[in-house]
Design a protein around this nucleic acid. Structure first.
Lengths: 156, 156
DNA sequence: AAAAAGTATTTCAAGCTCAAAACATTTTTG
DNA sequence: CAAAAATGTTTTGAGCTTGAAATACTTTTT
């Protein structure tokens, strides 16, 4: 293969990847917008709040602020405000860590657990509706493709 | 098929779709974060600014504010601030629409066009790198899957 | 034990995002 | 033609997001 045809082939794949990215962004944003809207309408809440609750629900003992922002892959300062508001609403509590006066543990309250259970059930139904075009093998296959992208990201 | 096994099948596909969504979100956010970081480092800019410039670059005659927010699928008020800052930087201009004193047209300046050309070239290379796992047929196939999701959204 | 380095969290400033309200102008309607 | 409805944009208030700086505490080094 000549350098010339090589360049042509690379460029065509490159365009296809760009198109892929634009579609990926569009459909992800669309689903996100719909979820945000429903969370607002049905529960008076937001996606970031849901994400924090989901993370905490997987750690019954609670998470330190830094661990929480690590799990969610958002900045430290970001989580502070969301947790502040969730605490105001009685969804989470901050607990001092015994041996370390710098750290605080964040835990779902009982009310928070119950609220998350309700919201998570609705969330699963919504996803089922929004991604209903995919049957089980397709969904599993696509999930694998995304894992490939994510792994590529992590290896940087 | 009994009602019982029906429920089981639906539930398994449902779980697969939920997993798919979580992976889709994770990888899209990862690529977005990387693009945002590079745009910040290399061009001192942001993704929303890039999106506005990209939209305007496809309409040489300019777009009305409402058309711009329509194309980008974000709220009206949102675009106002981004365009304000792009105008401050000499990237875009607002032009009064002759027959309608309510409306303004937003256009890329020459400087804006040149800047967008530079950024778009870098952007395409970045995508090529970040999604490099997919060859042309794969990328095209996946893009088709996302189109299905987007079309489903639009039909709501 | 004092100094230095490291860790955990919050604060800050800037920008993005939305929905809703306000404002201005144009078009339609009674 | 005047009132009402529709259209185009900006403002407002609340919340999310980031990176960087500030604060507080702990561990390590000298």
């Amino acid at each position: 293969m000549t350098a010339h045809s090589q360049a042509r082939v690379a460029s065509a794949a490159s365009k296809a990847r760009l198109r892929l990215w634009l579609r990926m962004l569009k459909s992800t944003r669309g689903v996100e917008a719909e979820l945000r809207e429903r969370l607002r309408q049905e529960f008076g809440s937001t996606l970031p709040r849901f994400d924090v609750m989901a993370a905490l629900s997987r750690y019954e003992a609670g998470l330190k602020m830094s661990a929480l922002s690590g799990v969610l892959r958002v900045s430290n300062g970001n989580v502070t405000g969301i947790v502040d508001r969730l605490a105001d609403d009685g969804i989470v509590v901050r607990v001092q860590v015994p041996g370390d006066r710098r750290a605080t543990l964040v835990r779902l309250t009982r009310k928070g657990q119950e609220e998350f259970t309700r919201q998570a059930a609705a969330h699963e139904l919504w996803i089922d509706e929004l991604l209903g075009d995919f049957d089980e093998p397709e969904a599993t296959n696509l999930a694998g493709c995304f894992d490939a992208i994510s792994r590529r990201e992590e290896g940087r």
